[in-house]
Amino acid sequence: MATAQSERIFVLPGDQIDPSLIPSHPKKALRLGPGLRHIPPNELVPTVAGQLVTDPRKNSIWVEYNGGRYVPTVGDLVIGTVHHSATDYFYVTLSSYTSNAILPQLAFEMATKKTRPNLNPGALVYARVCLANRHMDPELECVSPSTGKADGLGPLNGGMLFEISLGMARRLLMRKSVEEGKVVVLEELGAAGLAFETAVGRNGKIWVNSEKTKTVLLVGRAVKETDEKSLTVDQQKKLVRKLVREMS
């Protein structure tokens, strides 16, 4: 975790947050992450139970929790299923029982009116959330608006989708997922000589593809088991060894 504090601080919804915990940066404005609510003029209230995390360098504060429902936030990488398409948009399902997100048909790399991709209902896309307001449908994009490059986003072909918890998805997406997120399962599988590719969606999905069906199943099972049984680093290594032995 990016926090400098030695001990973890847990909060419950409606708790008072000790003002000494809130980072104060001379220049940057305070950024509130998920799980916190600002009540004007100057009150911060947690809305979920979890660990309070602060980052003094970015002047940000948020609550880490392993909640059930995905709430889109700008900048999240997500895996969605195309529900249907209209003239200018694809309507994409991010999670069950929520309204569809919209993905403009021109928000793909090198897409013009003539070359835009043709996605059938049920196709998977890896996209970034570019607009997420509380009472509006979120908007997605598969291209970086500044460079015009896809950066790995776009339709996902083949492979299999596995459901994981939101906390696991966040850990897998961390820049230093091994040190900070304590997930080594994918690295270990790669080191065991398996060839596969993955895409992790912040909405609790992981897409795995490989030439061999067995490899896909093995990777999916390893990640899901790590998630469900919240395995430690050593246990993950052991699990990978066991699964690889069973397969060969």
Partner: peptide, 10 residues
Amino acid sequence: AEPSLNERAF
């Protein structure tokens, strides 16, 4: 959410 085409095929 219905299963995607990828899941169906796989």
